[in-house]
């Protein structure tokens, strides 16, 4: 899949038309998002799936039938059996155990990338949106990074820093930081003009308080939507990176790296690709669903027109 910045960027872009949601944005929306999310049956299912997956991964040491890194070449490339429910890979490692442990790393990559991108992007976006003299330089640099095809930027960074999970996380975080920064910058630009912010400034509240309590607090909802998509895209992008040879520690593999290995032997040992392929697909799928439902729930127009949500 493409790194997915377009999907992530395009939405706020589109909605940022002068007649769009931004102008009518109201601060009281943020309390209701969880309730709205829970109102959608599909979203609840997706959320339950994601939570279950996270729990399974977290409990991997308890659940995994075998050591995921222990090789046993004598039983390599065996199909599913009572001893190995999901078969073994080309080093005779138990696929199920690797899948459980791999979930930890994949979800960690998704979460860490998102966290770094959100923190860094939000900081840059706030600075650029709030102080207009910083806007030019910050946005030019971010546009410069944005202009790279994300996959290429990430490969180059991983190769330069040397392979490893840290490099992958840094690389992907850098790819998504401009996306978050752009979003926060655009909300900041709007919120900055709001009467209550001007009032806060008049009574002499320091910038730091205004930024934190008014601007950022009011950007939380779109940020959460954005973050959901970034988690999904980051997990998939990590798989693409693995495929192109820029991966973390291959011994403790991510789902992406497992899928890459499975792809290599797809005609010989279907189970190798099927297991990681399915969980990877479902995870990204569920994250997308949650993101969609959230976005529509948070869009004020959706209150009147429930049908705006693509999937209920």
């Amino acid at each position: 899949m493409p790194v997915g910045r377009a999907g992530a960027v395009a939405r706020p872009k589109l909605r940022s038309r002068p007649s769009g949601w931004r102008a009518t944005y109201a601060p009281d929306q943020r309390r209701s998002w969880l309730r709205l999310l829970l109102a959608s049956r599909v979203a609840v299912l997706a959320l339950a799936f994601l939570i279950g997956l996270a729990a399974l991964s977290a409990l991997a040491p308890l659940l995994a039938p075998a050591d995921p890194e222990l090789v046993n070449p004598a039983v390599r490339l065996r199909g599913p059996s009572p001893e190995h429910w999901l078969g073994t890979d080309d080093l005779g490692r138990d696929v199920l155990s690797r899948l459980l442990y791999g979930g930890r790393i994949s979800l960690l990559v998704g979460a860490a990338v998102t966290l770094v991108a959100v923190v860094l992007g939000a900081a840059l976006g706030l600075l650029a949106g709030y102080w207009s003299w910083l806007d030019g330089p910050i946005m030019r640099v971010l546009d410069g990074i944005m202009a790279f095809p994300g996959v290429l930027l990430a490969i180059a960074i991983v190769v330069s820093l040397g392979p490893g999970l840290g490099s992958v996380i840094i690389a992907l975080a850098l790819v998504y930081t401009p996306v978050v920064a752009r979003l926060i910058r655009s909300t900041t630009l709007v919120i900055k003009q709001m009467p209550y912010v001007e009032a806060a400034r008049c009574i002499g509240l320091p910038h730091r308080v205004i930024l934190w309590r008014y601007v950022l607090a009011n950007s939380v909802s779109p940020l959460i939507v954005q973050a959901t998509f970034i988690v999904a895209y980051a997990i998939l992008a990590e798989a693409s990176l693995s495929f192109l040879g820029a991966s973390g520690n291959p011994e403790a593999a991510t789902w992406g790296a497992m899928l890459r290995d499975g792809q290599r032997l797809v005609s010989r040992a279907w189970w190798l690709a099927l297991a990681p392929g399915t969980v990877l697909f479902l995870t990204v799928f569920a994250l997308n669903l949650v993101g969609d439902v959230l976005r529509d729930a948070l869009d004020p127009r959706a209150h009147e027109r429930r049908e705006d949500a693509p999937v209920q």
Binding site: P2, V3, G4, A6, A10, K13, P149, V151, F243, L244
Partner: peptide, 20 residues
């Protein structure tokens, strides 16, 4: 159409994998 325009960057990135 607009979104697809923006998606060009992603398309180029995806092309890397597909071409391989």
């Amino acid at each position: 159409v607009t979104v697809l325009g923006y998606a060009l960057g992603d398309l180029l990135g995806g092309a890397v994998v597909v071409e391989t």
